[in-house]
Simulated assay, not measured.
Amino acid sequence: MPENISKGRKFLYAKSYFIGVLVSTDSTISDWFENDERVQLEGFIKESSFADLLCELVHIFKAGLPNYYELSSLFSMNYEIVQGYLISRYGLENARKEKEEFERRFGKGKAGMDHGDKIICRVESVERNDQDIDKIEMDIDMECLKINDLYVYVNEIPDLDELKTNIEDRFNDVEINIVINKKLIVKDETYRIIVLKDENRVAE
């Protein structure tokens, strides 16, 4: 974990593990519930302007690799793995074995679980005072469970040029692109944050 992460934000960077991996941790249940910085961050995400929220997300990713469950829960408790659930639990190879065993016992096609070629976590009922975000989706790396892409689906496209300027004023080492006034992409070495409306997402 990077040394520049404050103690109160360590929960946000807890490493994700597949089932069956033995880990040791100093975290306790009280670290989750008795964390003033977590409460403050939840409040900021709920009450901030969209521009300030986007800058906070860039800051979070620049500080390290956030845990997708922890980041999701800051926006809403209504989140779930909508694609690749077995992979997110067991890893790709073990997920295939789990599916094969289930179908061997109950019949072909009875597993009812989509492996897909990626893991997608979706956050709905996003808790924002401005009600400007429809949903959030995260494309999760199948090998290490880090967030590769964070999609922020907005109800209305904001002024993307103004957003770009706002981010550039605070961060001088990220790449920012605007795609035909319909999508803003903030890109660094390990992640992308994409702001768009649902109908403007196309295969990439």
Rank of each mutant, 00 (worst) to 15 (best):
R89S: 13
N129P: 00
D26T: 07
K135R: 11
L150I: 08
Y191N: 05
S6Q: 00
I29C: 13
V152G: 01
T190E: 10
E34L: 15
A111L: 00
Q131D: 14
S48Q: 03
E47D: 06
Y79S: 10
A95G: 11
G107P: 03
I120V: 09
V126D: 02
K183I: 14
I147Y: 12
I87Y: 11
V23T: 13
M138W: 06
E162A: 08
K118H: 07
I194P: 03
E156Q: 12
D139N: 07
R105A: 09
E100V: 04
R89I: 15
S24T: 12
G116Y: 03
D139V: 12
Y191V: 12
M142D: 08
I167V: 15
D159Y: 02
N148V: 06
R105F: 00
P66V: 08
L54E: 06
K187R: 11
D36E: 14
V202C: 11
R96Q: 11
D132H: 07
G112M: 05
A95Q: 10
S6M: 01
K146I: 15
E156C: 06
E56F: 09
V202L: 09
R105K: 11
G20L: 00
E162M: 03
E80N: 15
Y69H: 11
S72Q: 05
K183D: 10
S27E: 05
S72D: 06
